[in-house]
């Protein structure tokens, strides 16, 4: 099945088509931010604040209003998409990668290797995630990539746990035993037979994880160990302005909606992709 066919199939459902549209537009916005954004995201406009110094609600000059420093919210959101996507995809991707690696190794090999790996995972889990993130971020110089790494370090443990138990369940299924009797190598069993069965679980985590990582990044930014201002991210836009939520509702509403919309879209597309890629659901009536 070619990629085009796959996309066509996915678009049969309106919700999935819409989700794909959302993802594509966010990716597009972050890639071409400098062309699309109406203003410089860090420029503080004198006319962006009222005489009393309050931010402006959406108007014809500033389509989505301005923030506390008189910066254009729309421009900040467009540039913020870069940060959030990088965090959401890179941090989450690393977390999934580490988690899957640890989970599969521990679940497939069992024995002392599995024990050591899983006790290590438990140890990481027992640590308060936020504390760990703050500690790591404090030691390392905060930058976008470091933040992504820190979030990955905190988030891989849950993935490892889930993949571990999945792996145990699948490797005790008979078709894996059959592969052994046929003489298949461990590598072949892992990549050709085990991983395809883990794919749905990985897919669900990958899509669910995006929203949690975006939010974790926001928390870290709020605590001052995340993405450093003035670089915008959806998370730190919310946190900067959360105390003004009642008087400047747009400052929380728009970035909040975007986070929800993006993670929902990833979830829906992930689900649809999983169903489409599972051949054992085909031809069922």
């Amino acid at each position: 099945m070619s990629a085009l066919q796959l996309i066509k199939k996915l678009c049969r459902h309106k919700s999935v088509a819409f989700s794909l549209f959302v993802i594509v537009s966010v990716v597009f916005a972050s890639l071409f931010a400098s062309w699309i954004a109406p203003y410089d995201p860090n420029k503080q406009f004198f006319e962006g604040l009222t005489m009393e110094g309050a931010p402006l609600p959406p108007n014809s000059t500033f389509l989505l209003g301005t923030d506390l420093l008189g910066r254009d919210l729309l421009s900040r959101l467009i540039y913020g998409a870069q940060t959030s996507l990088i965090i959401g995809i890179v941090a989450n991707g690393i977390a999934i990668l580490i988690g899957t690696l640890v989970g599969v190794t521990a679940g497939f090999l069992r024995g002392w290797v599995g024990n050591v790996l899983m006790r290590m995972t438990d140890l990481m889990m027992a640590f308060p995630a936020l504390l760990l993130a703050i500690a790591l971020a404090a030691i390392l110089e905060p930058s976008l990539w470091i933040v992504a790494l820190v979030i990955a370090m905190v988030n891989w443990v849950q993935v490892a746990r889930v993949i571990y138990s999945e792996t145990i369940a699948i490797s005790s299924r008979e078709f894996i035993a059959v592969e052994r009797t046929l003489g298949a190598s461990t590598r072949r069993i892992l990549f050709s037979h085990l991983l395809p069965h883990l794919l749905p679980t990985i897919m669900v985590w990958a899509t669910l994880g995006i929203s949690t990582t975006v939010l974790l990044e926001a928390t870290l930014s709020f605590l001052g160990v995340g993405v450093q201002p003035p670089t915008p991210s959806w998370g730190n836009i919310i946190f900067e302005s959360q105390t003004y939520f009642t008087s400047a509702v747009w400052l929380v509403l728009f970035p909040g909606t975007l986070i929800v919309l993006l993670s929902l879209s990833f979830n829906l597309v992930g689900d649809a992709l999983r169903d489409e890629l599972d051949p054992s659901l085909k031809g069922r009536d």
Binding site: E174, F175, V178, P279
Partner: peptide
């Protein structure tokens, strides 16, 4: 014994 369990459904 179980021909369904012995065949990888994917």
């Amino acid at each position: 014994q179980d021909p369904f369990a012995a065949l990888n459904p994917r």
